[in-house]
Amino acid sequence: MLKLIGAALLLFAGTMAGFAQSLALARRPRQIRELIQALQRLETEIAYGMTPLAEALASAGRPLSEPVARIFRGAADRLLGPGQLTAEACWQQAVEESWAGTALREAEREVLRQLAYSLGVSDREDQRQHLKLAVAQLQAEETEAAEQNRRFGSMWKSLGVLAGALLVVLMY
């Protein structure tokens, strides 16, 4: 009896692990798309609205869903805070702080890290160039992430169930 319960638990765990992997794969392209949208909004705020950076970041991040919204909100809060931090430090800290909750990978992190060095420190034209570059890089990542999701998304689900079944078989 105990063995039967154990087997059921193993099968359940395997299935769940597979689903979790597949979900992470599906969340990544969605979050990259959100990042892209936010950066494009930031570009508009900076290039046409001449909005100060803190306000621009806050309004660019407002329509997003968690956890990507947290990056923008975190950076904006730090910029307005009393810490005397540079825009670069504020952005880096916000990215570090919110990163664990996202499904994003190292490639996206590198894009955001590069963006930190140019955020707010140059004229409008230059800001646009840097934001456009970041958006273009993220778009490439998004294509790749969507492709991975298409190819491996369902595979992970079945793999989870099958791995659970394999363990059950081995157990008996």
Binding site: I46, A47, M50, T51, P52, L53, A54, A56, L79, Q84, T86, A87, E88, C90, L119, G120, V121, S122, D123, R124, D126, Q127
Partner: peptide, 14 residues
């Protein structure tokens, strides 16, 4: 670099 950042409230473009 930090001085310019702080002087312009992180927004040189404004």
């Amino acid at each position: 670099r930090i001085l310019l950042d702080l002087l312009t409230e992180h927004s040189v473009y404004t």
